[in-house]
Design a protein around this nucleic acid. Structure first.
Lengths: 126, 126
DNA sequence: TTAGGACTTGGAGTGGACTCCAGCGCAAAC
DNA sequence: GTTTGCGCTGGAGTCCACTCCAAGTCCTAA
């Protein structure tokens, strides 16, 4: 399920990977440079080839990023993943702390949405 | 209800206003400079004195800002408010468009929170 | 085989939203 | 009445997260 046959697994150019992941090509290269993505495999001539595994990881990164996690914290998470299974408890702690933050921002956002609705209703009543 | 007696209405220093509004003093001055806040009243020696009315407006700005509205769009909203009641229909349009955006980001955030929860559950199961 | 698009690099540049600073005047608490 | 601290200005600086660039190489479809 997670480990595809390398010989036949589809690989993606950076353009295709950008299309599929929702990041730009520049962002993908940037993320690789700062260590958010492991060294991406290359063709003999040096072009990047992303795998489905890379895409899955990028999906996780997208989720963390879009929920407001700073790049630096994502980098710490990426480092933990690289270190192996013994870091799973710490990864859990990190994700739980993040979930708490996301929940708080959901609550805050919902309250503010209601405030905006109230404002609209007020303007309509004028 | 909205128009207090100016002679006795409480006024706030910029520090107090910062504490109450949730913006920093620097941000308040910055917002005034770029026209997000009307010219704030001053003491004879030039110090700012914010009123409850200012604070109410700052509450609206905080709400818009915290829900992701760019400063430039808030400035357009502020300009509409300054122009008077005939701009109310346009203000409604602006706020409704913003509410749609906020709703979308609420949905997105909730979905991503669930993804994170799933990730945590997965790590726990390992 | 060749045209045109996709990809490479390191480094510089951008945009948004603040945030800080120096050097000063004013306030208010003891 | 002085010290401690708050506030003033204009302009420069910062931070984050990209984003763009030039000059070159590579890939693919006709």
């Amino acid at each position: 399920m997670f480990v595809a046959d390398n010989a036949t697994a589809p690989v993606y150019t950076i353009g295709e990977c950008a299309r599929r992941s929702g990041f730009t090509m520049d962002t993908l290269r940037y993320y690789e440079r700062i260590g958010l993505i492991d060294e991406v495999r290359r063709t003999a001539t040096g072009q990047r080839r992303f795998t489905d595994g890379d895409l899955e990881w990028l999906g996780t990164l997208k989720c963390l990023r879009d929920t407001g996690m700073p790049v630096e914290q994502m980098a710490r998470f990426a480092a933990l993943v690289r270190e192996g299974d013994q870091t799973i408890p710490e990864r859990i702690r990190l994700l739980e702390a993040h979930r708490v933050a996301v929940d708080a921002s959901l609550d805050d956002l919902a309250a503010k949405r209601d405030y905006i609705s109230g404002k609209i209703a007020y303007y309509r009543s004028v």
